[in-house]
């Protein structure tokens, strides 16, 4: 390379251009997005328990949500961790066929999650306009559904991309980060389930 001045140099030309995990700037961006969405959910949980302290009976005047679809979806969420983990592992190894398979399976799990989620709404046993409890439960499930839909669409887009010839190293790290975000979606789903189905019955 042409030198401009006779200055001492720190030569970085040998450094890698494809990295995974905490070294990756996109990893940090994803973590920060998760913090924002996590803060939003935490505030919603706090609101739920705040309303609880303002009412003598719980849930107030309505039946608790039916368990069937919620529990079923919870199990599907936990099982979906496997393809997410698999996609991560294969992406880090640069294994395109492994990553393709992982993304497709993960997208199928996401579709099942969304289908079950529709039934979950119908089994909440309350209209959102019934009272503040009902509004909060709808909002909890609604905000999480937005996360779910976002990551489902992202997974489908990445899965389609994986079958093109546009996959360079940074795309493998995108597959990797997508799985990390999926872990987050599953984690929030589990906590939300405990609030909607558990706390409603136990408190």
């Amino acid at each position: 390379m042409e030198r401009v001045s006779e200055r001492a140099v720190l030569d970085v030309s040998g450094l890698p251009s494809v990295v995974f995990g905490p070294r990756n700037v996109v990893w940090l961006g994803t973590i920060l997005f998760m913090l924002i969405e996590g803060a939003m959910m935490a505030m919603l949980y706090a609101s739920y328990f705040y309303y609880r302290t303002r009412s003598t009976d719980w849930p107030p005047g309505v039946m608790p949500p039916a368990l069937t679809y919620g529990v079923a979806n919870g199990i599907v969420f936990l099982l979906s961790l496997a393809p997410a983990w698999w996609t991560r592992k294969k992406s880090r190894a640069g294994d395109i066929s492994g990553a393709r398979m992982g993304l497709v399976v993960l997208a199928i799990f996401g579709a099942v999650n969304i289908a079950l989620r529709v039934y979950e709404f119908s089994a909440l046993n309350c209209e959102w306009s019934a009272n503040a409890y009902a509004s909060t439960v709808w909002m909890l499930l609604g905000v999480h559904s937005a996360h779910l839909a976002t990551d489902f669409i992202e997974t489908v887009v990445l899965a389609v991309l994986a079958f093109t010839d546009r996959v360079d190293g940074t795309r493998f790290s995108d597959f990797d980060e997508n799985s990390m975000y999926w872990y987050f979606v599953v984690g929030v789903a589990v906590v939300t389930d405990f609030v909607i189905y558990g706390a409603t019955r136990l408190l």
């Binding site: 924002i36 969405e37 803060a39 939003m40 505030m43 919603l44 609101s47 705040y50 309303y51 303002r54 009412s55 107030p60 959102w128 306009s129 019934a130 009272n131 503040a132 409890y133 009902a134 509004s135 909060t136 709808w138 909002m139």
Partner: peptide, 29 residues
């Protein structure tokens, strides 16, 4: 910022789709 996005969204929902987050008559606070 998520706290104010949440409170203003809840307010908007109360006003547009009839949720009861802040309506004391229906357990809102």
């Amino acid at each position: 910022m998520p706290a104010v996005m949440l409170s203003s969204s809840m307010l908007l929902l109360d006003r547009t789709v009839g949720t009861q987050f802040f309506n004391p008559a229906e357990g809102g606070d």
